[in-house]
Design a protein around this nucleic acid. Structure first.
Length: 672
DNA sequence: TGGCCTCGAGTTCA
DNA sequence: CTCGAGGCCA
């Protein structure tokens, strides 16, 4: 064999090997060689091509990034329109779509469906002529997109040449995505360079595909996942979507796993299953499922509406992020007098609810995010319940910075800032906003548990001047309540009964209700086992610190609290109202204490009881209930939609029970 | 002193 | 649910 021939054979071998590793890495997600070894193969090929320039053909993997080429994003007209899909956000909308579909098919025809994840990326069309990639275009408005060929060539899940058999001309459609881990990596790098990070993987993918320099795109590790095709010439021999996906796979394209469905019930079940099991495990963002009629013949019969095919629908999960505009920034006053800025936003639907109010936590956060009225913002409700502002996407013209108010928005008293804390405080003890928050806490379930004393009632009672402190609640007369428009006979009696009942609550509840700094539900219960209220009011720092879990900070907070004259008066009025000041007898581990020494954490939604009830049952049997999972946790009881705590339990190897197993551990009298 | 572990506090919508 | 901070233990 001559030298050039030998070089050509060697180059071909290297290309085959590199293509195979690309396939294993990107298509199968199962590489068999290290990145270093891969780079070595690539370098060998490069050296060979430099020595024999005639070997450097455009379809060589070394040519994915041809340094000279610069993306120019010329407009490209799509030969076959790139339509968007209609959306369904719940099973009713899905059923409506299904009805319409059946109406447009010959009667009695029962379509079968293929379901695949709806990947949140950028739609792109790749044109292959005789198996070679000739152009790549973004979706654009569906009619005209942008030419991103130079950048698309750098994406290693996009084969530069298809493996056979392939048609003369084929336009493949799919989604360009960025894996979550790559997104994280890119943002960390940008942050380290002091540059603005991307808001989400989708934006990052879009930005990466529109890089002027393809070498930058190459570093971003974008991936391409096929979902359909536009043109297939000369004639498409394929009869169904499932068949197409199989064919695409043999051509060397990446296809996501699909699920077949026979009925609408199958689809809904898959939607739920996917949401609970698959969604979190996927390495990229998915915003729903795409449901397609499998048979092309049926697709043709179903046809199109003006905007979208009737034979497919995007069955979407509610968006976790949404864009909106800040209409105003107001200030709220907390139980302890903390002034918190709150953004009132143009109501926007996000993750299942309409959000109109978003807390900004503190003024540092406001400054850090650059928040001001009129700004366009991105809000998020991911995984958690509480919405937060992710970033300002577009500042308003002439938007003024937010400054802490000089006066309390509720009572007008001067606002102070303690130098060692971030927060600003209203220090007026009779500030109505503080009193309202304090009373709500006093009446809340883990405290005095007074049903019927909610936000509305508290606001009216305080605003009318009838209630100025917690002690006033116990001195309310029926006449006082009847003067309030909200109350008629029955409701007034009910509330008074509730208030009266609450006087007998164990001391722990009362101590929690007082709202002493650093004393919450658990510490209050511990203290109540060691002191009566009168003993606690007299206790020295030393004697307090002898209680486990009480250190110098907590002890001082308690003595400070009881040193106040107002507090002493409050206590005397409580005494007059005959509240329960008695020390709580420590729970003796009785014979029924099957859970003694065991710590339980309840998470997720339980079906047969509330988490609180479950905690009480565990405690009644000598166990402890905690809120956080650690290696010391004995059992995690996970209900529906359990989240981070379940994950942590699995990570730490803490035994996880479901509700049924927990109930099985209970003695009969405690079973729900 | 550092590294757990645990608790407290703030928080949205319907 | 998550953050921040107090308490405890090595």
């Amino acid at each position: 064999m001559s030298a050039p021939k030998k070089a050509a054979a060697e180059a071909a071998r290297l290309r085959r090997e590199i293509a195979e590793h690309d396939r294993r890495y990107y298509i199968e997600d199962a590489p068999i060689i290290s990145d270093t070894e891969y780079d070595r193969l690539m370098r060998q090929l490069q050296e060979l091509e430099q020595a024999h320039l005639e070997l450097a053909t455009p379809d060589s993997p070394t040519q994915r990034v041809s340094g000279a080429a610069s993306a120019d994003f010329r407009p490209v007209k799509h030969t076959v329109l790139m339509l968007s899909l209609d959306n369904a956000y719940n099973s009713e909308e899905l059923r409506a779509w299904h009805e319409r579909l059946l109406k447009n098919l010959p009667s009695g025809e029962r379509p079968r469906f293929v379901i695949e994840p709806k990947i949140d990326g950028l739609s792109c069309a790749l044109t292959y002529v005789r198996g070679a990639l000739t152009s790549a275009a973004t979706r654009g408005d569906g009619t005209t997109g942008e030419d991103v060929t130079a950048n698309a060539r750098t994406i290693r899940t996009i084969p530069l040449t298809l493996s056979g058999p392939f048609p003369e001309r084929l336009e493949i459609r799919g989604e360009v995505v960025l894996y979550n881990e790559d997104f994280k990596r890119i943002n960390e790098k940008l942050a380290a360079e002091g540059r603005e990070p991307f808001v989400n993987p989708r934006n990052c993918a879009a930005g990466s595909l529109r890089q002027k320099d393809p070498r930058v795109t190459a570093q971003r590790r974008l991936r391409f996942i096929v979902h359909s095709f536009g043109a297939w010439e000369p004639e498409c021999p394929i009869k169904s979507h499932a068949e197409f996906l199989a064919a695409a796979k043999t051509m060397g394209l990446r296809v996501e796993p699909q699920v077949r469905a026979e009925s609408i019930e199958d689809i809904v079940a898959e939607y739920e299953r996917f949401k609970n099991e698959t969604l979190v495990k996927l390495p990229y963002a998915v915003d729903g499922l795409v449901v397609k009629v499998d048979s092309y013949a049926q697709q043709r019969r179903a046809g199109f509406t003006a905007k979208s095919p009737r034979w497919a629908i995007a069955f979407k999960y509610p968006a976790q992020q949404a864009s909106t505009v800040i209409e105003d920034v107001v200030f709220s006053v907390g139980r302890t007098g903390t002034i918190t800025p709150v953004a009132k936003v143009k109501p926007v639907f996000c993750a299942g609810v309409t959000i109109s109010s978003v807390t900004l936590h503190n003024f540092d956060e406001v400054g850090r995010l650059g928040i001001h009225a009129g700004a366009s913002v991105l809000i998020e409700r991911a995984g958690e319940v509480i919405p937060k502002i992710v970033k300002v996407t577009k500042p308003a013209k002439g938007g003024r910075n937010i400054h802490p108010p000089k006066n309390c928005p509720a009572c007008g008293a001067a606002v102070v800032k303690e130098p060692e804390f971030v927060a600003y405080y209203c220090e007026n003890p009779s500030c109505p906003a503080q009193i309202k928050r304090m009373l709500l806490h006093f009446a809340s379930r883990p405290a005095m548990d007074i049903q019927g004393l909610g936000e509305q009632v508290v606001a009216t009672l305080v605003d009318s001047g009838r209630v100025k402190s917690a002690a006033d609640i116990f001195e309310l007369a029926k006449g006082d309540l009847l003067e309030i428009p909200l109350f008629a006979d029955k409701r007034a009696e009910n509330l008074l009964q509730q208030i009266s009942d609450s006087r007998a609550r164990p001391l722990g509840k009362l101590l929690n209700a007082l709202g002493i700094r650093h004393i919450g539900e658990k510490l209050a219960a511990t203290l109540a086992e060691n002191f009566s209220l009168d003993e606690l009011a007299q206790a020295s720092v030393d004697s307090l610190e002898r209680v486990p879990e009480v250190g110098p900070v907590v002890a001082e907070s308690i003595t400070d609290y009881f040193a106040s004259k107002e507090v002493r008066e409050l206590i005397e009025r409580f005494r007059g109202a005959r509240l329960n000041f008695e020390k709580v007898r420590r729970r003796e581990p009785s014979s029924g204490a099957v859970f003694s020494g065991k710590t339980f954490v309840f998470t997720g939604e339980l079906a047969k009881m509330t988490r609180q009830e479950a905690e009480e049952k565990a405690k009644a049997l000598g166990g402890k209930a905690s809120n956080s999972v650690s290696s010391k946790t004995s059992f995690v009881v996970a209900g529906e939609a359990a989240g981070a705590k379940l994950k942590k339990a699995l990570a730490l190897g803490v035994p996880v029970l479901d509700e049924t197993q927990f109930i099985a551990m209970l003695p009969d009298e405690l079973k729900p």
